[in-house]
Design a protein around this nucleic acid. Structure first.
Lengths: 237, 237
DNA sequence: TTGAAACCATCGGGTAGCCGACAATCGGGC
DNA sequence: GCCCGATTGTCGGCTACCCGATGGTTTCAA
């Protein structure tokens, strides 16, 4: 990914988001009209927990970390957002501070629609509140799943599920990515496990033939087997 | 609580919900008009994970358990909803299956607005999507907090935080309830800890003078102290 | 009044996952 | 081509929490 986009290229890129694709055509056009592409250098911060709302974002290229640093040094990593996914819609609704920190993991390009533009859009066509609400339900369902899995499942199946979730683009339909570029430490922070435990589980999955491990990279070689391992009592193949 | 309500009584009761109170007057009136009070016997099921949407609910009296049973016997308890709180709004937005089971913990009275009535209401006034969206953001923020606390904090502060959250009506403002009617086992399921661990922590809090324990009941005797215990490194009194 | 059900209290062994430490390996920049 | 930071692989001790078990208390209904 290099320079900026033509309006057509931008549209094509955004259409890869299932949410955007399902939005009304008029809304899509107005969003494209209202937003700007912004570039972010690796490590640069987009916003921090507690900041006031500055609008809605969509990752076009690169990676954006969504997390929160605790008073102790530890960081709770909620997700690493890949293209093409929207985020930042909570504050749009309730106008309260941002819940998490967001910063670019690598050089990234974001599509940004300012709060003012969104307000104008929604003023004109209040039905669109419904559409933006779908972003909320999507994340709420993911959050509920995460809570339940953390509560009920041991480490191994949780790792397997997260890998499948990431491979599936966090619910965005389409073909599964077979190769995930994720350091094991990031996985650890997302699942609230130690890096060592993650490594142990991944190694075990690898010997069972479900994965192939590389440097900051995980390749899913047998989706079926990984799905089985995601179960509580994996059918002892 | 005994028989049904006059329209005035119902309105007064619903106004105790901060969300409802902040909704436009016209919307409040239409909701009251559109809904019915339903009675539920202790143990009766309202809906189950996977059911299709049948509308929005508000607990007027009693208690409603929101949870999910896992394949193994274990139950993940998300929350026990007290009066006056609304729930069931996720499916309203995305029309997908219910995420959790809901059943009455005791004899309860619920205010129910059917899906059809809500659809009609929102057809007439699409701005109300925004208002319903506020229910979503409220729960999403709670869910994010829960995830983060589970990830970063040890058992004791998590228990303290949950007690404070319950005493505060899960974000509903107003005076803190000092007495919580909760079996320790329920607390355990909500926090994904064992009953024994909960008991141990509560006992410790009691000897430190923050709580007083009873039969299926916890009394907060020193909110300040409990707040301190909710911290990661409690300022050693 | 009495019995049963629900809940609390507490003990002790077992273990999953944490933590610190260290070595080996990879990859990108100069 | 070399070096340094980032990442993986692995060990051993540790501990917070789990789990089964047992007994006592409270509540409520028959």
């Amino acid at each position: 990914m290099t320079a900026s986009f033509s309006s057509n290229e931008l549209a094509a890129l955004l259409e890869r988001s299932a949410w955007f694709r399902s939005a009304p055509a008029a809304m899509r056009a107005q969003l494209i009209e209202a937003g700007r592409v912004e570039r972010l250098a690796a490590g640069q911060r987009l916003f921090t927990r507690g900041d006031s709302d500055d609008g809605l974002y969509c990752v076009l290229d690169g990676l954006v970390r969504i997390g929160a640093a605790s008073s102790a040094g530890k960081e709770a990593l909620l997700a690493v957002i890949e293209p093409v996914n929207w985020f930042g819609e909570i504050a749009l609704f309730d106008n309260r501070p941002r819940t998490h920190d967001a910063y670019a993991e690598r050089d990234s390009e974001l599509f940004h629609v300012s709060r003012a533009a969104l307000a104008a859009l929604l003023e004109r066509t209040p039905e669109y509140w419904h559409v933006f609400g779908l972003l909320l339900t999507q994340k709420l369902r993911l959050a509920f799943d995460a809570i339940e899995e953390a509560a009920l499942l041991p480490a191994a199946p949780r790792v397997a599920r997260r890998l499948l979730l990431m491979a599936g683009g966090y619910g965005e339909p389409g073909a599964l990515r077979r190769v995930l570029k994720v350091p094991q430490e990031d996985l650890a922070m997302m699942l609230a496990l130690s890096r060592q435990t993650i490594n142990q589980v991944l190694k075990q999955f690898e010997t069972q033939g479900a994965l192939k491990l590389g440097y900051a990279e995980i390749e899913i070689t047998d989706v079926q087997k990984l799905r089985a391992l995601a179960d509580l009592n994996p059918a002892a193949n």
